[in-house]
Design a protein around this nucleic acid. Structure first.
Length: 263
DNA sequence: ACCTCGTCCTGGTTGC
DNA sequence: TGCAACCAGGACGAGG
């Protein structure tokens, strides 16, 4: 999303902003936020974890989280559930669509962004500084199942329900394994697996299960690559054993009961 | 400090 | 066919 939207937004000035859903900017007044945003010039579209960061020349930033069903669409031909619109100085409109209205737009003043993100997010898994050793340190002493620990954004930033299941399948680790009990070689596998799952997801431009769309309205294709997520009773791509669905970390969780056993 | 669970929403699917 | 129950790419706050 960031890669596709950056060329649309960077260098543009917001001529007008409309926010139709009061939930979006809560607790701030959406009208006030809309007025404050208009006239801002976008310097950079950035990302941290699952947050999109629209940086402005003024030093302020708009922090966007799409949650489950949010999409940002460039000049949509037709779309329901539109919650906000950015009207740019080149005539382009960027519309925000969100069926379930869980998404958020927070306007942050200079200096507010870093502390806000730092208290919510751990390391970025795709930077060079992220190592198997570092992963081990993040998981050390934790008794929560791997599934729950990896969904926690303070462990690592950016893994969601799909990518945790995919990564655990690649790593041949049970989602129910206590997070602090992995040995060095298991940490090595998990580290590689997390990167593989995320890199494939980015290459395929995300998973469209129902609502997710790219800015041009097209669908992501990561759902074609799923090895575990959503594949109840389908044969494991490694061993042929039917995949199972359980509840772990409060979420639907798919895994291979033969490849991903508890020790 | 860590961990689990309910909640915020809307709409699609499943089962009786 | 009709209708209720359940489920869904996430994060946060309450409570154990």
């Amino acid at each position: 999303m960031r890669r596709r939207l950056a060329p649309v937004l960077e260098g543009r000035t917001l001529e007008r902003v409309e926010i139709h859903d009061a939930r979006l900017t809560r607790p701030k007044d959406p009208l006030l936020v809309a007025v404050e945003l208009s006239g801002e010039r976008v310097t950079e579209l950035d990302r941290r974890g699952k947050y999109l960061i629209v940086r402005f020349a003024s030093g302020r930033a708009l922090l966007i989280h799409l949650r489950m069903t949010g999409s940002l669409l460039r000049d949509p031909v037709e779309a329901s559930h539109l919650r906000a619109r950015l009207l740019l100085d080149d005539g382009t409109t960027v519309a925000y669509r969100d069926v379930r209205r869980f998404g958020t737009w927070f306007l942050l003043e200079p200096g507010e962004l870093e502390p806000y993100l730092d208290e919510r997010l751990g390391e970025e898994p795709l930077v060079a500084a992220f190592t198997a050793k570092g992963l081990g340190e993040r998981l050390h002493g934790r008794r929560a199942p791997l599934k729950a620990a990896l969904l926690d954004q303070r462990t690592l930033a950016g893994l969601g329900n799909i990518y945790v299941d995919e990564a655990l399948w690649y790593a041949k680790l049970s989602p129910l394994r206590p997070a602090g009990t992995l040995d060095r070689s298991e940490l090595q596998r998990l580290h590689r697996a997390i990167r593989k799952a995320l890199e494939l997801g980015i290459a395929r431009q995300g998973s469209t299960l129902s609502d997710y769309r790219l800015p041009d309205g097209s669908s992501g294709t990561m759902q074609r690559e799923f090895r575990a997520y959503g594949r109840t009773d389908e044969p494991c791509d490694r061993c042929g054993t039917p995949l199972e669905k359980i509840r772990a970390g409060g979420r639907g969780t798919w895994f291979c009961p033969r490849c991903q056993t508890l020790p």
